[in-house]
Design a protein around this nucleic acid. Sequence first.
DNA 1: TAACAAGACCCCGAG
DNA 2: GGTCTTGTTA
Length: 755
Amino acid sequence: MEIPNTAYKELLNDEQWAAVQYNEGVSVIVAGAGSGKTRVLTYKIAYLLENGWNPSTILALTFTNKAAREMKNRIANVVGEKKARWLWMGTFHSIFYRILRTEAERIGFTPQFTIYDSVDSKSLVKSLIKELQLDDKIYKANTIAARISNIKNNLITPTVYTSKAEFAKDDLHAQIPRFGELYKLYCQRCKEFNAMDFDDLLLYTYILFRDCPDVLESYQNRFSYILVDEYQDTNIAQHLIVNKLAEKCGRICIVGDDAQSIYSFRGANIDNMLSFQKTHDNCRLFRLEQNYRSTQMIVNAANSLISKNEHRIPKTVFSELAVGEKLKITGCYSDFDEGFTVANKIYNLVTEKGIRYSDIAIFYRTHAQSRILEEALLKRNIPYKIYGGLSFYQRKEIKDILAYLRLIINPNDEEAFKRIINYPIRGIGNTTQQKVLETAHVQHTNALAVTSDPIAYNLPVNSGTAAKLIKFGNMMQEFIAFNAEHDAYSVAEKVIMESGIMNDVSTDTLPENQSRKENIQELLSAIHEFCDMRVNNGSMDIGLVDFLSEVSLLTDQDTDQDDTTERITMMTVHAAKGLEFSYVYIVGMEEDLFPSILCKNERELEEERRLFYVAITRAKTACNISYAKSRFRNGQTQFSKPSRFLYEIDDKFIDFPEKQREDIRKERFSFLSQRQTTSARPRNLKPLAQVASTPTEEQNTYGLKIGDKITHLTFGEGTVLDITGSGDSTKALIEFKDHGNKQLLLKYAKLTIIS
DNA sequence: TAACAAGACCCCGAG
DNA sequence: GGTCTTGTTA
């Protein structure tokens, strides 16, 4: 079903249509929330194809597989699958992987290189810390891996890193002086293992284009138009590569919304977008400001919030949909109470208004908040689906099998080797493993080669151990030989049956083995499906390499197939970006949670504000916000104030009872203090805060003194150690006999004074 | 080497 | 509070 050019105009508004039509040079599309960004990108590419552009010269980059898939499908619907399939459309990682696989030899890898996920990277870091005999209390694998990732995202290679004194100074200051060495070794090992981590896919693409001008030129010549979605989320590597590629053809279109930049913690730099216009002459700017998603109330509330940010591209998002209802802000006593309240509201929404579960979503700042909500929903019998957490391909039993498959195609993959050398248990313990790895490092070969012929490598083990190693080595060699002549499914089936995994899962009767078995079955059918699909498309790429390359860039967002059952959706705000729901519940809007307690400066605070902006703008019809005054976190009850962001939304757009009460109280107070200043009292009054922190008899209406013995409904007997704050926020530090020290807000704590 | 206890850690997370 | 890792023991 092809659309004549004239029809586009009817499907788009003026600005959208202008953005679709402009294809002469560089352009930026600043697309406000809900302004039809994907729609514009889709039609823009369709428009190009219909006007004679060759699909294989168009490069379109997204951040998620899902976004790429959806856009490709939508384009295929307009111009037909035949044309759409030749587009270079995918995530940064998958497109760069494709390029790297073709050019692997130019940068010292083979095309069979493995992609290490974050677990693999962390595990490698851990073993290097051990190898260099560093204190793992100081050199924490998590921190080191994060730092390596961060450095790579800024395109700093080990050579550069170790040559700059300022880095050494930083590390000395951070008490990790040998970090540079660690980083260098990490990269060296990855190369020896013929493996790249996720960051390498970007870094090595950059290096490839930097060091091989002929390769760069061939890709520059290949692409005639480059389009990038969600540009506000690009990091410096992505930014530089994309611009380098577009240098020749001069046609690049970036789409994004600076107000929705929420990934700086993983290297995204909003400046890439903000400065794009300045660095490109003749750059056309298109602003999509009409929101087609949300009510006016929601859009206005979000606008008034985001206007508090200083760093932004000025724009006015507006809606012409219904005015809608004010955003409701509900204060709850506790996290438990919040869950109960939200569950109740959802229950009423569904039973009284007939709203479908799938139109409702709950967003939270951190995953940890989901549990208590789950409990509340269960009690109300509300079906839900939680996004995030472990994806299918990250489960232990799946990763184990994948490790076999990885080692088959890349015998240098030491992380894979370590995973399976003694799984299932074949009596090759830690000591032997260490010997094998060390021998492999010293003799510059891979661990698998050593196990295959321990005697030739002078491995210091007894004959029994040697026999076990040889048996494993032979088995792997057999798999490798088999793989050369069979498709991925046959190999996987053989591996599962002959490695002992099936036996291991089948023999004993542990309850978790049943689900493990099912997962293995599911993996097999996934591989089968993969082969089938490729064969049906006339592709012969049905080997292990092909399957693994697809799988290692997949995430759980891509494997959610069960959309048939009606349920509400629960996810973090980050995960919600790009989605929309009629009814949205944002929970946990408290200081130190949202914004996070880890926000140290104004810049980070602005990002949190954008995050909240994203959350609000997901809502189509109604947005409900709640906060709890006490919350169980990290093993203890914490008290908090409503988030500062709630006070930043204009009163006109919110229904916020607690704030209204506070405002009335403040008014009275200001009246009182005015009288005080006019009377003849000494000028140097104590600041208000100080007055408040020493509770007088009048302020401490709870009649509690330090040293009092009390009992609490849940914590039992205790002694008051300290009293702080005043009025509603008066807190007592109490030492409980059986529950240790606790800060309790007296307003809610049900205490009985014993003596 | 398996089983169990003690200790660490806990923000968001594409690919 | 829950989960994952590490250390200890038989």
